[in-house]
């Protein structure tokens, strides 16, 4: 058993970490011609570029990606927690249809929706604005949030709330002191979920944001074409870091249940 465990452990470790190897090597290479297995010389040209010349853009990209993801997540939670509660707790006529409608955007690609909305977003002066891009990210993030929270509420026992109510707690107090603590792990998952989805959106941001909302994916895509592999690798690493930190932060909170359902 022990041997099998270690085999499992190392094969998972290797396949997960392998893709990071070329990124790290390329980003620190100065000269690396074929067929050298390792760079002929190492250097920090790419990192100087990322933090020097392109520093402003990277910071802009980081902050706009971050604030977009944050706002989208918050709005998704505000709208998604009540909806998930309704779906998870109650029976009502037409429930199947309502849930279908709320969940359908998960499977329909954002590209179809963004292209349809673009023209009208321009007319409503929403195109190329922060709000416009938040709205298009919402079509992706909100359904996932509802999906996760719905699952949380199927195991939720509202009797505690009634007890609290009978003890004289106000509705606000019930939400903050009874409901939220009980569903907190679920909320963390949903929030991470939504954050990562927004964080990695490319095409919908490009269509609605028109390139003006310079998120990290947009920046990386424009650099990708450069064939400057050291720079592309360095920016890729910058792109992974915040989400990775978020994972580290939440790992403790979530324990072993992990990020199930996040893609």
């Amino acid at each position: 058993m022990r041997v099998q465990k270690w085999i499992l452990f190392f094969s998972v470790l290797l396949s997960v970490l392998l893709p990071f190897l070329p990124l790290v090597l390329w980003s620190t290479s100065e000269r690396w011609f074929y067929p050298g297995l390792l760079p002929q010389s190492f250097g920090l040209r790419a990192w100087t570029y990322v933090f020097g010349t392109a520093g402003d853009q990277i910071v802009t990209g980081l902050s706009s990606s971050f604030s977009l993801a944050l706002v989208t997540t918050i709005v998704s939670l505000i709208l998604g927690i009540p909806a998930g509660r309704a779906l998870g707790l109650y029976d009502f006529p037409g429930k199947k249809m309502v849930s279908l409608l709320l969940i359908l955007p998960i499977i329909v690609p954002p590209l179809s929706v963004s292209m349809g909305l673009h023209f009208w977003f321009i007319q409503l002066r929403l195109a190329e604005t922060f709000v416009g891009v938040v709205l298009i990210h919402l079509t992706v993030c909100l359904p996932y949030t509802i999906f996760v929270i719905w699952g949380v509420f199927t195991d939720y026992n509202p009797d505690f709330e009634e007890q609290a109510q009978s003890l004289g707690a106000s509705p606000a107090k019930i939400i903050v002191q009874v409901m939220l603590p009980m569903i907190l792990p679920g909320i963390t998952v949903a929030a991470l979920f939504s954050f990562l989805l927004s964080w990695s959106q490319y095409l919908s941001t490009l269509i609605i944001g028109g390139g003006k909302l310079l998120t990290l994916p947009i920046l990386l895509f424009s650099l990708m074409d450069s064939g400057d592999r050291p720079v592309a690798a360095a920016v890729s690493l910058v792109f992974i870091l915040p989400a990775f930190l978020a994972l580290m932060g939440s790992a403790y909170n979530l324990g072993r249940s992990g990020l199930q359902g996040v893609r």
């Binding site: 989400a243 996040v262 893609r263």
Partner: peptide, 10 residues
Amino acid sequence: QIPLTVPHLV
């Protein structure tokens, strides 16, 4: 969980 946080692009 790490792959979950890595964007497809990267």
